[in-house]
Write a protein that binds this DNA or RNA. Structure first.
Lengths: 345, 345
DNA sequence: AAGGTCGCGGTAACCGGTTACCTCGATGGG
DNA sequence: CCCATCGAGGTAACCGGTTACCGCGACCTT
């Protein structure tokens, strides 16, 4: 079908080695030879066969990014950033959707598809401590999430506890005292939700407050729909509250929608805060107070760490469970502060 | 490093052909032989080398999906669906972001990275009629968009004109007469925006109305931010309007945000409608009237058409510029209808 | 002028699968 | 009882790159 390196070599009157030297920008090629080869390539419309190169080199130049679901804005934004960062380093990204299901998350680690790539950036949702040994695989892995899941694999983490505490302190500083939590209440776990819940409880405790169990709107999956359901449950439960901390932004947006439907004014009656700083929140009505977890930094760091391991000399030993924690930034907006006063014209 | 097929063959006391027969589920393998091979595979922890298989087969089992940007909700949802549909057919998806820039869109067609995959599902934004010849490539391509761009490549299109006419008719039926357009006004072009604009103008014309040029809020890129800017321009322009048709949902959401900031009540003073039916619109305040372009159908059809071409016998000639148009559905919501009356308890 | 060095490029083995072609033994029909 | 047929599995060429190793001429050194 299409031309091979041998064809090019023949056409240019050189050997395949020389052609290879040219296409790979090797130094020792005479200028005249180089141009002769390039001309032959142009003439024949030669395109390198990547499967052959990959087989020869023993690597593919691709990495897998495993996320729960692309239609969740946070993961779409994450993928966007990872693709760009990887692209800058010459890597191509293959996205795997796990749906946040434990079974599918485990499969990502062993699937045939994974073997087409050199390494894995993994954002697990359902994996628990006991699954840690499964992460002991023979290819480089970088985890997005806390080290608590596994101590020997590099992690890029958010400051979940600190950021959640900051958000909660923000609500407390505004005088809110009965803060409902939207999301799974599981302060003992190791996932992002558990850590954010811990930060939330820490802030309450520091303020001398307790958290009544009735002020939890449970949401297993983190979507707008489950956020809405959780809020309906809270409102129907009858326990009064003057603020809501949702474990992420889509939950918060789902909750805000229900508050609107039930004529509960935000933030006058109930202040709402989320987590993630997805763009949607900036344009919501009211705009959503949240915390930016440093997504660009997270994506770039993850790619850097992975590429570092991919290109490491055989002798290079990776450090003892490296963990990078990204910087976070509070984003106070209308859903807690209220609407900015309109300048009178 | 890791075991090869030859190692497995040796361990099982058979030939590589037999191992290959086993792993590929060939029929003529005796049960005892099969189990012996499987045992050896298990024992050695054998994993197939995909680069070698790909080289041998001349295909990779991967397809490229080229979209403008993953952080745009519509394309995130599209990617989600395409990945799942491809996965069901045994294909892996590699996502390429073009940023909607013509240069990068053209590069997708020739880039080294593309050559790692067997085919391309392409959602171009900036390509124009003159670029059509570039689409004449030697690998299968399925375009998302109208056939107008190129007649010999299969297309999966939305009913852009009809759907936009339907949305506009909906606004007209509600008594709105001065409808602003948010997005690029270019009824002559071939892109989605132009087609939607045509449908919009058709509906106006049919109602005996003209469209004053002042009622255009231009937005080159289709994002919340540009939608907001366009709306500011419209409001500052002073030309009164009682409705807005935004060429897609994120534009509409950006516009609604500005209407809120300027104390313009939606839909009482201005009704707003979008296009795409992204989930965000269902949870917006007010919820966004829009039209669902049949995204799942589009994604599945595109994958089907591409896979069909990838697996086609050499003799199979593809039809003369196949075009599939997905079904659309109006989604009237609060941004045009107003808030549903609360049932009194 | 002989030997050394360096730049340039050729030859062929190798990466790890797939598969055309072939062999061999068992079964069955005449 | 012999040969045709068929199922099972072996052998080796091939996919198209990379690269270790080697040869050769030109220029430099002393």
């Amino acid at each position: 079908m299409s031309a091979t390196m041998r064809d090019v070599a023949r056409a240019a009157g050189v050997s395949v080695k020389t052609v290879s030297n040219v296409v790979n920008d090797f130094p020792h090629v005479a200028a005249t030879t180089r141009s002769r080869v390039l001309e032959a390539i142009e003439h024949l419309g030669y395109q390198m066969n990547f499967s052959a190169r990959n087989l020869s080199l023993g690597r593919t130049g691709m990495i897998t990014l495993a996320v729960p679901e692309l239609s969740l804005p946070y993961f779409a934004a994450l993928s966007d950033e990872v693709i760009d960062a990887a692209s800058e380093r010459g890597y191509t990204v293959l996205i795997e959707q796990t749906g946040g299901q434990r079974e599918r998350e485990l499969e990502v680690l062993v699937s045939a598809r994974r073997r087409m790539t050199d390494g894995l950036i993994f954002s697990p949702l359902a994996l628990r401590g006991p699954d840690a040994p499964t992460l002991e695989v023979e290819f480089p892995v970088v985890l997005l999430g806390e080290r608590s899941l596994h101590s020997r694999v590099p992690h890029v983490a958010m400051a979940n506890v600190d950021a959640a505490r900051a958000v909660t302190e923000h609500l407390l500083a505004l005088g809110r005292r009965r803060i409902a939590l939207v999301g799974t209440f599981d302060p003992q776990g190791a996932g992002a939700g558990s850590l954010r819940t811990r930060g939330f409880l820490e802030a309450l405790t520091a303020a001398g407050l307790e958290h009544p169990p009735a002020l939890v709107g449970p949401a297993e999956a983190w979507t707008r729909t489950t956020g809405a359901e959780a809020m309906r449950g809270l409102l129907d439960g009858g326990e009064p509250f003057d603020a809501v901390f949702a474990l992420n932004d889509v939950l918060a947006l789902g909750a805000m929608r229900v508050l609107y439907e039930r004529d509960v004014v935000v933030p006058d009656a109930v202040a709402v805060a989320g987590f993630d700083d997805i763009e949607e929140g900036r344009f919501a009505r009211p705009s959503l107070t949240t915390v930016a977890p440093g997504l660009p930094q997270i994506a770039r760091t993850a790619v850097e760490l992975l590429v570092e391991r991919l290109t490491a000399e055989a002798g290079a030993v990776d450090g003892p469970g490296l963990e990078v924690v990204a910087d976070f930034t509070m984003q106070p907006r209308e859903s807690t502060l209220g609407r900015a006063p309109r300048p009178s014209p």
